[in-house]
Design a protein around this nucleic acid. Sequence first.
RNA 1: CGGGGCGUGGCGCAGCCCGGUUAGCGCGCCUGCUUUGGGAGCAGGAAGUCGGAAGUUCAAAUCUUCUCGCCCCGACCA
Length: 476
Amino acid sequence: MSKGVTPQSKDYAKWYTDVVQKAELADYSPVKGCMVIRPYGYALWENIKSELDRMFKDTGHVNAYFPMLIPESFLKKEADHVEGFAPELAVVTHGGGKKLDEPLVIRPTSETIIWSMYKKWINSYRDLPLLINQWANVVRWEMRTRLFLRTTEFLWQEGHTAHATADEAFEEAYRMIGLYRDFAEHYMAMPVLVGKKTENEKFAGAVETYTIEAMMGDKRALQSGTSHYLGQNFAKAFDVTFQNENNEQEYVYASSWGVSTRLVGALIMTHGDDKGLILPPKIAPYQVVIVPIYRDEESKSEVMRYIEPIKKQLGDSGVRCHVDMRETLSPGFKFNDWEMKGVPLRLEIGPRDVKNEKLVVFRRDRGEKETVSRDAFTASVTAQLDTIQNDMLKARKAFREHNTEDISSYEALKARVDAGGFARAYWDGSSEDEKAIQEACKATIRCIPFEQPGTEGVCFYTGRKTKQQVILAKAY
RNA sequence: CGGGGCGUGGCGCAGCCCGGUUAGCGCGCCUGCUUUGGGAGCAGGAAGUCGGAAGUUCAAAUCUUCUCGCCCCGACCA
């Protein structure tokens, strides 16, 4: 096995798959397009999941579970929805050794099964709002797959809410995309642009789709989470009405929102470098790894006696800490190994440190190593982890700003897209114009940011005056 | 579905063009000794019906046909 990963500058895609496999995040499954999420990769997902779950519950949502198998006819009830998903459905035609009367689709998303149930549960405005989330797997038969970014089966979370008014459903969609932004920035240290999708890019069945868009290390955009205002589309398709305060029957208003294991891919590509992963402390499975260094049994027990209380103190401070006791590997190997795995802080502790009551701290995001006193370290470790967390976000923000350009001509757009990065531009074009641009230079409108300058400019494509700015980029 | 690449011990590969006796190499693995502050050294050892099927031949990892699978690049998507 070769020592490191392919350098990013040489082949970014290869770098990515190298990191995923060598850091033991995931492996290919026997079935094309599917992946096995290995313990270290799953730990990342678990940390993402548990924090989001807490945030959902804090905002009044509850979890439930809806089944994976959905009658095929359900998917056909909402015209745009069926059109959007038909090509990527996995369909079960046989069960119990017999051909089924009606094929069952494996959920590509759960709007239809959930709204068929909401019909039973919602009668009155007093039953609203209904704020349900589920953690589940879904299957979409993708033509081209990439580990974590796009796999045939993936894990995600899907919130499905029902409201009495359009405003309320609209606000819910807006609130949840904001929640995703907070999560991405504060936990994943990943800056994102928040905005609205164009007609071309929105979810099949939605009235409006909101997105958080992040810039990866190769300057391409990654849609990292979405929320949708669904209007009454699914309520009408599934005939879900409620009696309002005026004793009238009205269709229910809806939102849905989700993030997936793609976030793990986002994490890798936002922060990683040529040595492998760099994990933000709040998501890292291990925040601190201790590598003991010793010569013989005597120095080993001496070092271990010294490490024991340090480990305990870190644990008491709520720090996720691991001591690497693997016997057959040299310290040097372990250094590289934990750097590959992105651990924020590594402690190197040997006889020299024991004697001086010191330890060596290596900071993964900066690649800096220093010798500090043991007590000073343990007293400040949580502050240091916070510093790393903040510095990582700052660094990625700076990177994104550096690679975002205001452009005012088609030529400038092409140049920026070729160079990589985001182009910010006034836009007043049509869906057809957007498709033409995508055809010509592979760039799409990633979003219409919520944050607008408010001033009038000239659309770089049509030459018309407009106040609307958009972000264009090549995307995953 | 179009283009490209690849299937040979656990992993990465060589050998194939030009068929020929025990199919090599690196990493990993096992045993022992020496090591351990940036990917340890030496010695010994285990492990492969060469993706599958059929064919050509005295003889096939190697040639022919078919087939299965995977990866990468493009059109769809989170």
